[in-house]
Design a protein around this nucleic acid. Structure first.
Lengths: 326, 326
DNA sequence: CTGAAAGCGCTTACAG
DNA sequence: CTGAAAGCGCTTACAG
């Protein structure tokens, strides 16, 4: 396991008896008009010496980092895992790596500066405050969230997802439906609320009540407690933890799911399989969100405005927490 | 929102009427013997122009990337979220960022080469095959796993964690205990099995049966099905999904937890709160693992051998899935 | 077909 | 106390 010193282009050039610039061109495949024999010698020596291009030097010279940044508020949320996968795949197709980080442990501003200093060609921002964005030099794009005054974002069809959930309950005969919302500062939550409202109002004789939530299980549990003695039989939770909390709250109150009430949550992840009863969800195209984010970053000029909704479909995943109204 | 062109050291030097080298020293705080007035002028101009050092140029010159890499097999596993947090905090203390990636979408080898080209000062490897490691130039460290023949790893006290789980069940009076193991290629699983065996064998009159599992819920469910009609009253699951599966398997068989059987799993995460009954777990010092990994990377020479166990304590988290034997 | 030169933006001895 | 020079490892016109 000998760990050779770094081998440079100059080392290969010397070994092959040619100029360093020729080695560069041949190794990058930039030059067809080179004698096969010379080409061969260069490749042979490069392999022999174990040459590996220095990405940093290349970046400096070409002013391209070959990397994208992805800011994730917290890695525990399974939603982000899928965004990361999509972004990595899309970046790989362009020969770039994705560097994901939460910026934990850094003063947030310092962290942004550490990234925005040539290390990345673009930044996907899934969390964090918008304040830092203004001073960014590198092109950025908000992902799965929008911020007033920042016209660079790519979001999911949150309205549509909530509507799909409501539609599922309507199809099962539910006529009194509650919505467990999210925190007021989450724009995803207000879009889901709007989608809920629109779908509920689109059918006569259907009532929809909006409950305050906070995207946590505790919040979902508290919210449903308010409707256990009402006519409500269907619950749409704005996210997965809220839905899990709703399940708990109903069980606490002695309400059987899905016999006496149905619950469906926006977003899907493995955890939905583990709770009892298994939770019906609306799956969002998160991989596509990550991939499309990278695409936009490479396509758009840094000053272009974007306000795009991912066009891939949401998908209802029926499990055991929803059933016909009795 | 004007996006200024990149401002370089030369721009600041020109504006302040001094040499570029002086600007570098002053801005880096490397030089005390500079006229306060000059110092002031340099700082003023830097701020005025919005100067931001180019990390790439600095890296090339100083042969330090100011970044560490962290290879994570899959982001969905909450265990890794905590490792990432610990690593980020430790790196931040050293002025470095952590770039996390699964290498998804890349041919694995190509991906390692993309990182091992000056982009990082060291690599923490939590997953992936050991084959690629041999050709790495950058110092690396296996984290939470060991590989035969690779003497660079930092692991958790897996034996101890399993022992803590067994001890908890013994304390509750259980005398017939089953262990739901992991896949044969997971070294964490074999260490946990060893810890289970040692602790069970340390007390007279206690029987321990080792069941085959695969670190999934389905595996855990299938495993416990084999012991429902035996004397077994306590189950130690080698990881969280196995424990959740064990819970499901027991419910399927009509066994009430914790009345008729107890379940405790190694590793803790939020999901343990969501299942029914809430799962008793052994929490591992994952943040510490990540932080210590970065520490070792910065301390060790690339050729040093390491085989360290994280010295922070594991912690029993008693919830509702364990109770006294009846 | 190949080479020599310039330069990306810094940092670090070395002078003065 | 400050400046001038060299150089990190590449790439890219420009010559020849």
């Amino acid at each position: 396991m000998s760990r050779p010193q770094r081998v440079t282009l100059a080392d290969v050039a010397r070994a092959a008896g040619v100029d360093v610039s020729l080695v560069s061109r041949v190794l990058r495949g930039h030059d067809v008009k080179v004698l096969d024999e010379t080409k061969q010698r260069i490749h042979d020596q490069a392999r022999e010496l174990g040459y590996r291009p220095n990405a940093i030097a290349r970046s400096l010279r070409s002013a391209k980092a070959g990397a994208f940044g992805l800011v994730i508020p917290n890695f525990s949320n399974p939603v982000y895992a899928q965004i990361i996968e999509g972004a990595e795949a899309a970046a790989a197709r362009r020969g770039s790596v994705v560097m994901t980080s939460s910026g934990e442990g850094w003063e947030r501003r310092a962290w942004y500066e550490a990234l925005d200093s040539g290390r990345v060609d673009g930044l996907l921002v899934a969390g964090g405050s918008a304040v830092e964005l203004e001073s960014l030099r590198v092109p950025y794009l908000l992902v799965n969230r929008s911020v007033p005054g920042v016209h660079r974002h790519l979001v999911l069809d949150d309205e549509g997802a909530a509507a799909v959930a409501v539609r599922h309950l309507l199809d099962l005969g539910h006529r009194h439906i509650a919505f467990v919302g999210g925190p007021s500062d989450a724009d995803t939550a207000s879009r889901r609320a709007a989608g809920f409202r629109a779908e509920v109002d689109s059918v006569d004789g259907v009532s929809g009540v909006e409950l305050r939530g906070d995207y946590t299980a505790a919040g979902g549990r508290a919210a449903v407690a308010q409707v256990v003695d009402t006519a409500v039989t269907g619950v749409v939770a704005a996210n997965l933890p809220s839905g899990i909390g709703a399940l708990e709250g109903l069980r606490d109150a002695g309400v059987d799911v899905p016999r006496d009430a149905s619950v469906v949550a926006v977003h899907d992840a493995e955890i939905a399989e583990y709770v009892v009863p298994r939770l019906t969800t609306v799956r969002m195209p998160l991989r596509r969100l990550g991939a499309r984010g990278i695409e936009l970053l490479t396509t758009l000029s840094p000053t272009d405005e974007v306000a795009e909704v991912v066009d891939a479909p949401t998908e209802l995943v029926v499990r055991d927490s929803t059933g016909p109204v009795r």
